[in-house]
Amino acid sequence: MSTTTQKKNQKKNIVIWVALLIAVICFCVSAGIVLFRQNTPVLIRGGGAATENAAAEENSDSIAVPGYEGLTLKANSLQQEIALRNPPQNTCYFVISLYLEDGTLLWESDYIMPGSDSDQIVLTQELPQGTYPNAVLKYSCFKMDKTKTPLNSAETKLTLRAK
């Protein structure tokens, strides 16, 4: 075999090894992303989230209410990219309402089943860019029966940031 052919073969081998190495790296990165995403929160936009816990067991003795110190909304827009969740361990419906500090209703959800998200938030009025402290997320809880009997409710105070 001539020296030129040997060199060509060597180059070929190098190319194959490099390609193989790239493929292995790509596979590792993809696997890492997939594994990482399994532990990421369900609801991300707005800066807070309730983590989906696959092992969450239903609990009829208490009601789990997700709380946030703050939420970020799109300024000057009614349509938002946030949905709020009724945690899967609950055994009641949620109706979630969002109020400004002065009591202005910004949004109210439909009945949300445990383990489900609300529809994406559509505000009743656009918020100019700014910070809105002491807003309130009200969680009204209802039995999952025909009469939808009211249960204890919860409110969480939070700061809205319109950006």
């Binding site: 009601i63 997700p66 945690p87 009641c92």
Partner: peptide
Amino acid sequence: VPDATYTLNIPAD
């Protein structure tokens, strides 16, 4: 400084 998040567990009916 991130927003604090939590789950508040309250008594049901």
